[in-house]
Amino acid sequence: MARWGMAIDLDRCTGCGNCMAACHQENNLAAVGPEQTEQSRAFHWIRLVREVSGSDAHATVRYTPTLCVQCDDPPCVKVCPVHATYLSEEGIVGQIYARCIGCRYCMAACPYNAKVFNWYEPEWPGELKKKSNPDVSLRSHGVVEKCTFCHHRVNHAREQARAEDREIRDGEVVPACAESCPAQAIVFGDLDDPESMVSARARSPRAYRPHEDLGTRPKVFYLEEQE
């Protein structure tokens, strides 16, 4: 059984924002509009978090694509009262929208602020809903959602692999963010497979996981920038 993980090479990342847009389209995220954005309710499952060090002209800014890090010991799962968020067999922190009661406890408990909430019913102006990806269900108001590691793509790959009676190959599953990255900064794969690209990157001396000190054991690795 695979243990899905991701490695993001910050040295490659150019902060182009394609991952945000690709995720938005792939996962049927609805734009929330100007008023809600003003109210700090806009959301992306992956977003470029901007860190500024220093405040003068020599300040440096860096962008980190931030998403649900799919902890192996997820603080959000522990607190969910209804089993709407849970750790799947393959290490993906699932979010079951039909079960979620919208208490937002998982959001409060997540140290990565990876979860977002549908404050209103998502709106699709005109016929925009038509372009929605049929693999991903449309959320309704009042439920929490977050990055799923594009697990529908994992399911498709698994189905294909089983139809061909083989294992899923390394690199066969590519989440939307990784797919659209022109810098090829994002690698996805099985962390339990020592041969996989993602394992190789995770073993890099530059690799770190966000807030490892919290003991959440994230499965998203970042590779520190060089220079």
């Binding site: 182009c16 924002g17 394609n18 945000m20 847009a21 690709a22 938005h24 389209q25 797919e179 659209s180 990255c181 022109p182 810098a183 090829q184």
Partner: peptide, 10 residues
């Protein structure tokens, strides 16, 4: 080479 900018995504 597989990349697509936000405008293209839209």
């Amino acid at each position: 080479r597989g990349g697509l900018c936000p405008v293209g995504q839209a």
